[in-house]
């Protein structure tokens, strides 16, 4: 089974190197990656995630706004009736923020230096759980 994921870049900064790097790495690991480009609002990311029926959403932030933006995406997904879709995030995120982010509903946080294999494994696991859950629900 193919896993479909969305890679989004919320916020105003235009640094999408990290997002693109992860998008390509996931593609090369066999994922179908929907890339939505830079400067997306949380609501836009959530709407795209719903329409594309992705099994997971990955977010990238380089601007330090992750504390506000990542939870905002989680909220936007809930608003769009998709609070079950797992959200993972990475970028320039200090280690001390990890716990806060997890509490806000972000499934995994990748701090700088996380090996790409770890990131891919986390996406695989998140997607697998999501699809299993959906199949059980029918």
């Amino acid at each position: 089974m193919k896993y479909r994921v969305l890679i989004g870049k919320p916020g105003l900064d235009g640094h999408d190197r990290g997002a693109k790097f992860i998008a390509r790495a996931l593609r090369d690991a066999g994922f179908e990656v929907i890339y939505t480009g830079i400067r997306r609002t949380p609501a836009e990311i959530a709407a795209a995630a719903v329409q594309e029926d992705v099994a997971a959403v990955g977010l990238s932030s380089m601007s330090g706004a992750h504390l506000r933006l990542f939870p905002a995406v989680v909220d936007a997904l809930a608003q769009a009736g998709a609070d079950d879709i797992p959200v993972l995030g990475g970028g320039i995120i200090p280690a001390e923020d990890v716990e806060t982010m997890r509490k806000a509903g972000i499934r995994e946080i990748f701090t700088p230096g996380t090996p790409v294999d770890t990131i891919i494994a986390a996406f695989t696991e998140a997607c697998k759980m999501q699809r299993d859950r959906e199949n059980n629900e029918g």
Partner: peptide
């Protein structure tokens, strides 16, 4: 890899919040 990078949506994002526009990659 069998994977794919699907980026056509980027050019249609101005309609992203319009639920009457259904985009599927």
């Amino acid at each position: 890899s069998g994977g794919a990078l699907l980026g056509d949506r980027i050019r249609m994002m101005e309609h992203a919040l319009d639920w009457e526009v259904v985009v599927r990659s």
